[in-house]
């Protein structure tokens, strides 16, 4: 069965297009590398940046190993607290990606359910949900997140906030961006709903929820897949921005954003690597995800595909 599926995939136009597109292949492998390396960070990383016992303040601000004052123990140098930058980046990227993916899962869950209901039921419910989405979109994600996170910090104190940072970031980014999904899903539901196969299953007598999730949803997956890749990249950027502003991950458990932030004050004192290296890692991650998103959109969008 699995072999058959694989063969089907091999024969599909998707695989063919993919194998012809160098950008897509390279992006895909870089992304895979990121995923594998970061999620096996405890095995790969030479140090555990969360363990205070291995951190020595005397090692702080050592430049990358290939530079003059470099230390071969610290491949990418160390930060202001003496943590190995390479290990910290691995752990940080893991946090960034976890937040990005989970936030997008939350967005997708909210957006798909609401968009599906709005599109399928239509009428005033559709109007109501879409106006809420419009209102939500008219606030920028960052603004909502900043207000919400700042209020939370002020109310419950920094300590509780630091413990719950990951969950809070996922919730905030997830809730702020659901309209993207809702709109996309609603548009494709409206298109699918007009097709005769939906009438056919209504004639069979299926209940609306089964029609929605069993029949219409699988046919709206392509646009969902496309925006998901872009949305994960966006969520990672949002998280980085919030962390950079000091509202994201604490310095004790840094994500890419808070690493960039922590190095920022040393950038003019010569320790540029603390900011630049995680910055480059972040840019490459976001870039490959966007490139993959573009590739998916080109392949899965039948209108573009015709040309």
């Amino acid at each position: 069965m699995v072999a058959a599926r694989w063969h089907q995939f091999r024969d599909s136009g998707f695989y063919h297009d993919f194998s012809r597109d160098k950008t897509a292949i390279i992006s895909f492998f870089i992304l895979c590398l990121y995923v594998v390396v970061c999620f096996s960070a405890p095995l790969v990383a030479p140090f555990d940046p969360y363990d205070p016992t291995v951190i020595d303040i005397m090692d702080s601000e050592i430049p990358p190993a290939w530079l003059e004052r470099g230390d071969p123990r610290f491949l990418l140098g160390t930060d202001a607290q003496g943590r190995d930058l390479f290990s910290t980046i691995l752990y940080g990227t893991r946090i960034s990606m976890t937040i990005g993916v989970c936030a997008v899962l939350l967005q997708a869950f909210l957006g798909i359910s609401l968009g599906m209901i709005a599109g399928y039921v239509g009428g005033s419910l559709d109007n109501f949900l879409m106006r809420i989405a419009d209102i939500q979109l008219s606030f920028s994600t960052l603004m909502v997140a900043i207000i919400f996170l700042a209020v939370f910090q002020a109310l419950f104190g920094t300590e509780l906030y630091e413990r719950l940072a990951i969950v809070m970031l996922i919730l905030v980014i997830g809730i702020a961006e659901w309209p993207q999904y809702a709109r996309t899903v609603r548009a494709s539901v409206l298109a699918e709903k007009k097709k005769e196969y939906v009438d056919a299953v209504r004639v069979i007598g299926l209940r609306p929820h089964r029609i929605m999730f069993r029949h219409i949803l699988p046919n709206t997956l392509s646009p969902i897949l496309v925006i998901s890749t872009v949305q994960v990249a966006n969520a990672i950027v949002s998280e980085a921005a919030l962390s950079f502003l000091g509202l994201g991950m604490p310095v004790t458990k840094p994500s890419l954003g808070s690493l960039i932030n922590s190095g920022f004050e040393f950038i003019f004192s010569g320790s540029w690597w603390i900011t630049i290296v995680p910055g480059v890692v972040l840019v490459i991650l976001v870039l490959v995800m966007n490139l993959l998103g573009d590739f998916l959109r080109d392949v899965l969008n039948p209108k573009l595909y015709k040309n």
């Binding site: 005769e196 196969y197 009438d199 056919a200 069979i204 007598g205 046919n219």
Partner: peptide, 17 residues
């Protein structure tokens, strides 16, 4: 629904792909 059924015009749209 068990007694009355329908056949549609467009064979390309009437089956779930």
């Amino acid at each position: 629904r068990k007694k009355m059924q329908m056949i549609f015009q467009n064979p390309y749209a009437s089956l779930n792909p």
